[in-house]
């Protein structure tokens, strides 16, 4: 498709300071997201996916790289424009309890952002609040309730409605299903899908749950140790993974047909855990059966096949398993 991405991230790096230590949480990350598309960001906890999302949302500063929204450089536009662009990027967090003010009624929680942007008079705001509740399939009578009177799924719907109040073009959802009951997860996932399609919103969906990713996402970016190691369509990345880490992540999914705990696989994951961060060499070299001289320099994200947007940070381009000595 020949169109400009809604969001472009180019070579983004984020350094965090934690307890006197300096950690490069995100290194040289590049990705893009089109309007109306769901891009899933997957990877284990500590891989940097939340930090990358927060940098995109402007919650944490980045120290290198470029961030473009609607082809505009965030850093190059005047502050007033930047604020109005930021408003078009909204977040939904994992824990609705932490993001909804427990003292306020639902009506107040949803009206607040509308008041801030000067949506209209009281009756216009009241109508819009009712509309937002309908969008997330909640009953209009909930406006007089407080968050604690709602179930976890209902609270997450309110958090989504509040994000939608700003009419975002990009919705960043950081593990929005993780705090929910398993049966509620499925209904919230399909709600996200419906809203995103109907309103043509671009969505960055951060999740550790690969089954949910498969259900919800158009494209996937896999992060490990602060870097994006592979990106492409959901089918390409999840069915024909090219990077050794992606293969390991997928192989680690429990499989009813195997029905065994693969000790070699656990061992491979164990050895992968602490990563040397300074070295230029590919992190996966010690365990990779395809390793060669070239791997002393870590690969850039490059095309897996000639004609697609499937990219991997690996010098090799074949389908043979690259990890797991089993």
């Amino acid at each position: 498709m020949n169109r400009d991405p809604l969001l472009e991230v180019r070579g983004l790096s984020v350094t965090l300071q934690a307890g006197g230590r300096v950690v490069q949480a995100v290194r040289d990350c590049t990705l893009h997201l089109y309007a109306g598309e769901v891009l899933a960001l997957v990877g284990e906890s500590g891989s940097g996916k939340t930090t990358l999302a927060r940098a995109i949302a402007g919650i944490v500063p980045f120290d290198k790289g470029e961030l473009l929204f609607r082809s505009l450089q965030f850093r190059a536009v005047p502050p007033a424009i930047r604020r109005s662009l930021r408003r078009r990027i909204q977040m939904v967090f994992q824990d609705p309890d932490a993001s909804l003010n427990p003292m306020h009624r639902i009506g107040t929680i949803l009206a607040e952002p509308l008041t801030v942007i000067g949506f209209g008079d009281r009756s216009a705001i009241r109508d819009r609040v009712a509309e937002l509740l309908a969008m997330v399939r909640l009953d209009a009578t909930l406006i007089d309730k407080r968050p604690r009177q709602l179930s976890g799924g209902e609270k997450q719907r309110i958090a989504i409605a509040r994000a939608l109040a700003m009419e975002p073009e990009l919705l960043i959802a950081d593990e929005p299903l993780s705090s929910l009951d398993v049966s509620t997860q499925a209904t919230i996932a399909s709600l996200f899908r419906d809203l995103q399609r109907r309103l043509n919103i671009g969505m960055l969906f951060i999740s550790h749950d690969l089954a949910a990713v498969r259900q919800l996402a158009d494209r996937v970016a896999v992060m490990h140790a602060g870097e994006i190691v592979e990106t492409g369509s959901c089918g390409a990345v999840l069915d024909t993974p090219a990077h050794p880490y992606t293969r390991l992540l997928l192989a680690a999914m429990p499989d009813m047909r195997r029905r065994v705990l693969d000790v070699h696989l656990v061992d491979a994951i164990d050895r992968l855990a602490p990563l040397p961060h300074q070295s230029r060499a590919c992190h996966y070299r010690p365990q990779c059966i395809r390793r060669a001289e070239i791997c002393v320099n870590s690969a850039e994200l490059a095309r897996v096949a000639a004609d697609c947007d499937h990219l991997a940070r690996c010098h090799f381009r074949d389908e043979r398993p690259l990890l797991n000595p089993a």
Binding site: G43, E44, S178, V182, H208, L248, A252, P254, V263
Partner: peptide, 17 residues
């Protein structure tokens, strides 16, 4: 392991076992 990603889940299951 419901809140954990696949690689961590597998390691925790191995530990429990």
């Amino acid at each position: 392991t419901t809140a954990l990603d696949a690689t961590v889940q597998l390691r925790i299951l191995a530990l429990l076992k």
